[in-house]
């Protein structure tokens, strides 16, 4: 299998003394889904955000899609990664002053210099895939949370990414809206998309993921298959955490 992502001894601290990431190392192969779990403040967001350069790190090395970055890598390299890696946020972060379709076509037009018509056609295709094509002309504020998050997923797909990052994509949603987003993510996984998903949704993790990464205080405590992790976690901390969220 071709590795899409390799992290080697990633280390980061925001303030002196407290490590948000502590020698984090792992590999993700193409087409695989990695679920990241861990208590609040354990470093899940920090980990996922270093991958597309939204956070810098202090030590270690990242290899994303063959692009190697280290602590002192420049903006250019990070830009190249961002064009090939999509991200979906907990708070959706749609652009409120742009229509749904404009939200999706902005990056293809600005970054990839596609022509508008082509970008719009592809954008509509993505909206259909997410089941929200009827909202194309509306603005984000007119949509429900679940619909907004599906727009955000469509937006992250517009640049045809080779890796998708999700940071708690359903945590800000009403419970009855969670499944429509998880179902969309499940379909992406079925199509072979490589994904890293920070989530507390155990059912999703069990059914969709290939690996579960458990992190606590910035340290990876275990990386296991979901079968092992959810029935027979090797680490005491993991078992305690699973008991808490169950």
């Amino acid at each position: 299998m071709k590795p899409i992502l390799t992290a080697k001894n990633l280390t980061k601290s925001y303030a002196k003394g407290i490590l948000a990431l502590n020698k984090v190392s792992f590999t993700l192969d193409q087409g695989k889904v990695l679920v990241v779990m861990g208590p609040s403040g354990s470093g899940k967001s920090t980990l996922i955000r270093t991958i597309n350069g939204l956070e810098t790190f202090d030590e270690g090395e990242l290899n994303v899609l063959g692009i190697k970055i280290s602590a002192d890598s420049d903006e250019r390299k990070i830009q190249r990664i961002r064009r090939r890696v999509g991200m979906v946020f907990q708070q959706f972060n749609l652009f409120p002053h742009l229509s749904i379709l404009e939200n999706i076509t902005l990056a293809p037009i600005q970054v990839q210099k596609r022509n508008k018509k082509e970008a719009e056609e592809y954008g509509m295709k993505l909206l259909c895939q997410m089941g929200i094509e009827s909202h194309a002309k509306k603005y984000p504020g007119q949509l429900s949370g679940g619909e907004q998050q599906r727009v955000a997923i469509a937006r992250s797909l517009a640049l045809k990414p080779e890796l998708l990052l999700f940071d708690e994509p359903t945590s800000a949603l009403d419970p009855e809206r969670i499944n429509e987003v998880l179902d969309a993510m499940r379909r992406l996984a079925d199509q072979g998309m490589t994904m890293i998903v920070v989530t507390h949704e155990i059912k999703f993790a069990m059914e969709v993921s290939d690996q579960v990464l458990f992190i606590d205080s910035g340290k990876i405590l275990e990386i296991s298959s979901p079968e092992v992790f959810f029935s027979n976690a090797s680490h005491e901390r993991s078992r305690k955490f699973l008991n808490q969220i169950n």
């Binding site: 350069g53 939204l54 830009q79 890696v85 600005q110 992250s156 640049l159």
Partner: peptide
Amino acid sequence: VPLGQWEAFRSLGISEKQ
């Protein structure tokens, strides 16, 4: 303007200026 808006455009590879 919420910080999330900056992160959203950055994550799309859109330059700081744009």
